[in-house]
Design a binder for these strands. Sequence first.
DNA 1: CACTTCTTTCTTGTATACAAGATATATCTA
DNA 2: TAGATATATCTTGTATACAAGAAAGAAGTG
Lengths: 207, 207
Amino acid sequence: MKLRPGTPVSEISLAEEFGVSRTPVREALQRLDKEKLVEIVPKSGTFVGRIPVSAVIEAIVARRALEVVIVRKAVERATPSQVLEFRARLERQREIARKNDLKTFHAEDEAFHAAFASVAGYPGIWEIIRTVKIQVDRYRQLTLPQEGRLDMVIREHKEIVDALESGDADRAVKSMEVHLDKLQLDIEVFGQTWPDYFIHDREIEGQ
Amino acid sequence: MKLRPGTPVSEISLAEEFGVSRTPVREALQRLDKEKLVEIVPKSGTFVGRIPVSAVIEAIVARRALEVVIVRKAVERATPSQVLEFRARLERQREIARKNDLKTFHAEDEAFHAAFASVAGYPGIWEIIRTVKIQVDRYRQLTLPQEGRLDMVIREHKEIVDALESGDADRAVKSMEVHLDKLQLDIEVFGQTWPDYFIHDREIEGQ
DNA sequence: CACTTCTTTCTTGTATACAAGATATATCTA
DNA sequence: TAGATATATCTTGTATACAAGAAAGAAGTG
């Protein structure tokens, strides 16, 4: 994890680093504040955002619900060429997994899911998912990557693509649910291990 | 509709109106820009956002998916006192409907749905719904309120609460789906009637 | 030594001046 | 008059100066 939650990030130091004034830095930080990636405390300082535990839980729930809708629509609209593109993606994932390149694999995984949203004609819904996913990804960066996880993910992806190709919407939805349910890890326990990195419901003010 | 889409809203005029400088106005406008409520064109001007047709369609789909999750969880977690609060809300809605106070009714309707999210323990998901809902609400302000619509809404609300009270999650979900499906109006036709108020997919750039 | 109080220094919040591009207007030219 | 061109004026983008509060440190006090 590059920047530990709670680490101060002052506007002026960022401005100097990027060679610009405080104004554009401020605007960028305000956007990040809204996405809960930083916490701006008036007259005090700006800090790398702690991960709101409840947000992670809700993000997983929300993502699941939205991806189910996406995959159902994708089955309805997918063309044969698009199905073949998914096959290509699966093969690419296998190649990346062989090299054990986690960073690239994560990017390709995200592209895989984004592709379903694109096929479904729901780019806006993917945008929502991408937003809530950020906190989940941040959380997952703290967990150790499990042995054989990549191959498991690819098998689940393949099952979804198989269902897509067969045109079986219910099966595709079921596969997607199975795939996404793997994200439900023991967050509460984890939040107690690195308490400073997380923020619990009670601490959240306003809004 | 108070401000017609496309109407220019300059930073300096807003600053004078509120008696502050451009800086805080800019920050507010940037937030609105992200929510697609205004469109900031660099070096040109800021305008009241046109309603992205595709966003409205996707918003309805996304909201439906998320509210289904919410209502299912709400049935699971609702306490008797919370059920009674919903009964009180229904009665209040009837009172407002009798006065034909559309503005208040809309606020109460939103509070009704927000209450389910609260009971479900998903305030963050409601925040997502609230965000996507904005464009839908803006669109609906352009449609004429239909005769007897309020009574219909209340009946649908009552059906959801009845299901909640009986603890029948599937029935509650079904009722919510029926309720929300009423939002699916003929958007495409409408977008052609007032073309300037809307923005179609092709016109959207970047982001 | 422990505690309180005051001062200094840091942070973000706001106002303002200037830069740069887009757009509308006026002017020139055929 | 019609069109093209140049100018003026508008907009947002950026830099900087100052204000106000928070936080950390120093100094005083028991």
